[in-house]
Design a protein around this nucleic acid. Structure first.
Length: 426
RNA sequence: GCGGGCGUCGCCAAGUGGUUAAGGCAGCGGCUUGUGGCGCCGCUAUUCGGGGGUUCGAAUCCCCUCGCUCGCCCCA
């Protein structure tokens, strides 16, 4: 059995860990539904072509991180490395023009072939939100605020919001012209990674982490200075509105982000507690993507939150499970079936009811109930079965002074009264 | 893809060449098959991530490999 293991960069989530996941998901989904955002589910597997065209051939994600293979029909397939391209594809395919304004969310696994690290896996999970068909600055502010609030609802502290603007396609082309000129003059002062990017993806050089390159870049032309008046206005409107909402931000002119489809606003939320993989949320506007992919001209903006990173940040209080309300101790053939019937009835009261299936001694079953920290127990054995009744007892760990009552199996009124007094059942 | 650290039972670990691989937690069984918190007793690694080598003898030394981890790169 030793040779059968999970693949590198994948993990098993066991029941104890899933308590936290489920709690986090619950809070997140509540917040999304309050904002009237609808769920969309797209396939995990897509044509490779989708990501090459959507994300950009020269991006790191596409050029070296995709899980790509040929299926039995010789089609090139890829496990999705992110969600936006799939959502765009699904909308185009299903007739976006009949419904051009949509607020959508999705949640699920993504795949990138990278070296695993804390907060980074090969199969990881993202929550994504996309506002489709919205051009306004307020849609950007709304979406940033949403990301900010989701993280806030989970009690995550010390978050940093970084923003930047990339301008529109024209702004970028103008900038790129003079940036390329500058890059070629200063080529020798750049690190080798950046030199390689000159002809492939010059914008990415902007957020190089190389100290030497960073220093040289200080004298490079600024994208900001190539923005049209309109783009400038967008950006200052964005900042003003964030200030009204009292969401603190830091401008980072080098924030470019790794996917080609971004225009205008790009943002990232980081948390120092995550260590080197600090980004918990990244997003931005992508006004040209849907058109580029063959759909109608449709502006859009979105973000993605990394769920593994979110779980790392979320507080310990979300790890607490809901305890069993009633543990049913039972023994004997007749008692057994009465106990099953009783369990079904109690579950209709929306109580967590666990039926002991072991047939072990009463003593064992009591110990099990105690270990589970069950709030109460029901005892039903041969004696009770014969009289068509059961014993119900509060099962307080602290005191042994437990209230116990014998109730007839038919007496639902008495049962409900007991439940409402002792388990605050309504 | 490149550097640094690590790898002994489900978890936390002692052991650094000499033959029975400590201990704690958890688990299981019993004292106590009709009654729970405590206690006591017992069981649970032919084996030290895997493979090969050195040696009379290896968890301990050497080589390879896999995995984890921290950084770089990049991102969620």
């Amino acid at each position: 059995m030793n040779n059968l293991k999970n693949l590198r960069g994948t993990v098993d989530l066991l029941p104890d860990q899933l308590i936290k996941w489920q709690n986090v998901e619950k809070i997140v989904l509540e917040q999304l539904s309050r904002s009237s955002i609808k769920e969309i589910r797209t396939p995990i597997l897509e044509m490779t072509e989708l990501f090459i065209r959507g994300i950009g051939e020269e991006t790191d994600v596409v050029s070296k991180e995709m899980y790509t293979f040929l299926d039995r029909g010789e089609r090139s397939c890829t496990l999705r490395p992110e969600g936006t391209a799939s959502v765009a594809r699904a909308l185009i395919q299903n007739g976006i023009s009949s419904n051009p304004h949509q607020k959508l969310w999705y949640m699920g696994p993504m795949f990138r072939y990278e070296r695993p690290q804390a907060g980074r896996q090969r199969q990881f999970h993202q929550l994504g939100v996309e506002f489709i068909g919205y051009q306004s600055v307020r849609s950007e502010v709304e979406i940033i605020a949403l990301a900010w609030d989701i993280l806030g609802k989970l009690g995550i502290k010390e978050l940093n919001l970084e923003i930047n603007t990339l301008g529109d396609l024209n702004d970028r082309l103008n900038f790129q012209k003079s940036f390329l000129k500058w890059l070629n003059i200063n080529k020798d002062s750049l690190d080798s990674d950046s030199q390689n990017r000159i002809n492939k993806n010059p914008l990415r050089i902007l957020d190089s982490k190389n100290i030497q390159t960073k220093k040289v870049l200080e004298n490079a032309p600024r994208l900001f200075n190539f923005l049209s008046d309109k783009s400038h206005k967008r950006y200052s409107d964005l900042k003003n509105q964030l200030e009204v909402l009292q969401i603190p931000y830091v401008e980072n002119f080098n924030l470019v982000r790794g996917l080609d489809y971004y225009t205008h606003t790009a943002f990232e939320i980081t948390c120092g507690a995550l260590g080197s993989q600090a980004t918990v949320c990244g997003g931005g506007r992508y006004d040209d993507l849907i058109k580029q992919m063959g759909g109608p001209n449709t502006p859009a903006i979105g973000f993605a939150i990394g769920l593994e990173r979110l779980i790392l940040l979320a507080g310990k209080e979300l790890e607490v499970p809901r305890n069993t309300d009633i543990y049913i101790i039972n023994q004997g053939l007749i008692a057994e079936s009465l106990a099953i019937d009783l369990a079904r009835k109690l579950r209709n009261y929306d109580l967590i009811v666990e039926l002991d299936l072991s047939g072990a001694s009463f003593s064992k079953q009591f110990k099990k109930a105690n270990k589970l920290r069950s709030k109460s127990i029901i005892i039903i054995g041969d004696d009770e079965a014969a009289k068509k009744e059961f014993t119900i007892r509060l099962f307080d760990k602290e005191s042994f002074d437990n209230k116990e009552e014998v109730i007839s199996l038919e007496n639902d009124i008495k049962l409900e009264k007991w439940l409402s007094i002792n388990l605050s059942f309504k």
